[in-house]
Amino acid sequence: MFETLILMLDATMRVSTPLIFAALAGLYSERAGIVDIGLEGKILGSAFAAAAAASVFGSAWIGLCFGIMASVGLAMIHGFACITHRGDHIVSGVAINTIVAGLTVTLSMHWFGMGGQTPALTGDARFLDITFPFADALESVPVIGSIYSNLLSGHNILVYLAFLMVPITYWAIYKTRFGLRLRAVGENPHAVDTAGISVSFIRYRALIICGILCGLAGAYLSTAHNAGFLKDMSAGKGYMALAALIFGKWRPVPVLLACLLFGFLDAVAVRMQGVEIPGIGQVPVQAIEVLPYVLTVLLLAGFIGKAIGPKAIGRPYVKERA
């Protein structure tokens, strides 16, 4: 039983990683007042770019760079539409998602001719799991050994980076000048402008960070969690990250917990596949896969109280005295 739990938590960490990156990406963007429904598109775009570059150059790190560049590029398009031209954030985000979904498949067919996939990655073209020192030796120690060797050790570097990003984000948002301005710009951009700070510049910087984090999420999917790009491989992770962001009320630590919860449910879904539950019978996988979404709706509908987002979110800033 204990071993099963450890295995499920281990799977939770793996599945949560892209959610954590993406939800934190959304946190930077939305805290600055930019609605980012385009997380999904950025993840997918980065997954493709990372896998394609990794297979061409044979290096996961080069793949990661390309993934981040693609994602930041998409974030800048979003910024150009929403910040510079005061466009509708949702329209821009949906447009990005749609374009990326089509473009990744078309480009990969053109370049690799493998029906929308990229070549399978091997060796250095993937991020490999890191084994902690003495992991093998300690495995036999009861409880602690199992936690150390099977749960904490044996993930790739991006998993650790995702968890590390949570305290870093907390610190950046609440303890730095940039964070103060970022939060202010999402609440009342007029206050920021009258204090002599450029609203656009802060929002663009927030989107760059958002792009980098989505880039990490996408590269993780195609070059670490899997070994290559598959059509639509982001599979709604961007939307789930948005749900986690709202669920966590736009705060780093609660957002992490929401991502872990969603990841855990996903791990449970995999575990439950084909398992007979006495008295009920076989539970359809879909019934469990739908849980994160049902949970978000239910919890937001009343159990955790009203989720109040940044006040100026989604509204273009017009430099005008009201």
């Binding site: 730095t176 103060l180 202010a184 609440e187 009342n188 206050a191 920021v192 204090a195 002599g196």
Partner: peptide, 28 residues
């Protein structure tokens, strides 16, 4: 300038509002 419609971030503390834009360093 004290604006007719206050230029304050409502869910910030007084202190945070006062230093916004004049934080005196990258770390608060």
């Amino acid at each position: 300038m004290v604006h007719q419609h206050f230029m304050l971030v409502e869910n910030f503390s007084v202190l945070e509002n006062v230093i916004l834009g004049a934080e005196g360093g990258a770390v608060l």
